[in-house]
Simulated scan of single mutants.
Amino acid sequence: MSDISLSGGMQNVPQVKVGPVQVAAFSDMQQLLEFIVQQDATVFAGSAIAINPEKVMTAISTPQIAQVIAQADIRYADGIGVVKVMRKRLGYKVQRIPGCELWQQLMLRAAQFQLPVFIVGAKAEVNQQTAAKLRQQKVNLVGAVDGYFTDEAALIAQIKQSGARIVSVALGSPKQELLIQRIRVAHPDCFYMGVGGSYDVFTGNVPRAPQLWCKLNLEWAYRLLIQPSRIGRQLGLLRYLWWYLTGKI
């Protein structure tokens, strides 16, 4: 099977196989944004998931996670390690699309077209701060529920009743993706995006890496410096690097 293919619904976007994960090689963030929300305000009905080396390694070791990832309609490159594999296979420069930045730009695009948005996840205070900031940006926010809800059925009913066209869920992977799958059953005509810690960054509760670190693709190292507890997760990057250098990925 070829490492490069085209995916239905994204005929103009090459798909590169990184480990067991097919990743879409969007030319840049703007192309992805315009795919999600077209110029006539049509919203892509489906879900997106950010792919980084950690997710690739987890997919290799855990078939259940690989299945969760495969069920997303859009898998975009959020890690420089994934981007390097894609550039090597395609022979041209593929842009990294940081999930946090993608979500923030999507919110601005939603505001531009006044599309109804619903946010789920994070601590109550962070969720409220996120909602307030989005409203300041003129986002048509039709609902905001923190990550400590106790009645999932009520949450799904609330999202469906709100008429949301874009729903972002910040619960961490794979919890957020699994919830998205269940919500989609009841409310399919909507775009869903798992956003991890994006609300914390958006509200300033967690600092984003300085621009120079981001430019040098060292954001992962900065996050490790401010959150040493991530060391276990980051060790997987060394294994990914070794597999990349030896041609296993």
Results as ranks from 00 to 15, higher is better:
218 L>S: 04
197 G>V: 10
202 F>A: 09
219 E>W: 06
214 C>Q: 13
195 V>C: 13
192 Y>R: 03
194 G>W: 03
190 C>S: 13
200 D>W: 11
202 F>L: 10
209 A>D: 03
198 S>N: 05
212 L>R: 12
215 K>R: 14
213 W>A: 15
206 V>S: 12
198 S>M: 04
212 L>S: 12
204 G>F: 09
203 T>N: 11
209 A>M: 10
218 L>R: 05
192 Y>F: 14
201 V>M: 15
211 Q>A: 15
198 S>Y: 06
194 G>L: 06
217 N>P: 00
196 G>S: 11
190 C>P: 08
214 C>L: 12
193 M>Q: 14
197 G>Y: 00
215 K>L: 06
219 E>V: 05
206 V>M: 15
206 V>L: 15
217 N>Q: 14
204 G>E: 05
210 P>N: 08
209 A>T: 11
209 A>H: 10
191 F>T: 06
214 C>H: 01
199 Y>G: 08
198 S>R: 02
190 C>W: 04
200 D>G: 10
210 P>S: 07
213 W>V: 13
193 M>G: 06
201 V>N: 00
196 G>H: 08
215 K>F: 00
209 A>K: 08
192 Y>W: 01
203 T>P: 01
215 K>C: 00
208 R>L: 14
198 S>Q: 03
202 F>V: 03
202 F>G: 05
204 G>A: 07
210 P>M: 07
194 G>V: 02
196 G>E: 09
218 L>P: 02
205 N>W: 00
214 C>G: 04
210 P>G: 04
207 P>L: 11
190 C>K: 03
218 L>Y: 06
208 R>S: 13
191 F>V: 07
197 G>R: 12
200 D>E: 15
207 P>R: 12
200 D>L: 14
217 N>I: 01
215 K>G: 03
211 Q>V: 15
211 Q>M: 12
219 E>T: 01
201 V>C: 08
206 V>T: 14
213 W>T: 09
215 K>I: 00
195 V>S: 10
204 G>N: 10
220 W>R: 11
192 Y>P: 07
218 L>F: 12
202 F>M: 12
220 W>Y: 11
192 Y>M: 01
219 E>R: 00
190 C>D: 10
196 G>C: 11
203 T>W: 08
196 G>K: 07
192 Y>T: 04
192 Y>Q: 06
196 G>R: 09
220 W>Q: 10
191 F>G: 04
217 N>F: 11
191 F>P: 05
215 K>Y: 01
199 Y>E: 05
217 N>T: 08
190 C>H: 02
204 G>D: 01
202 F>T: 06
212 L>G: 01
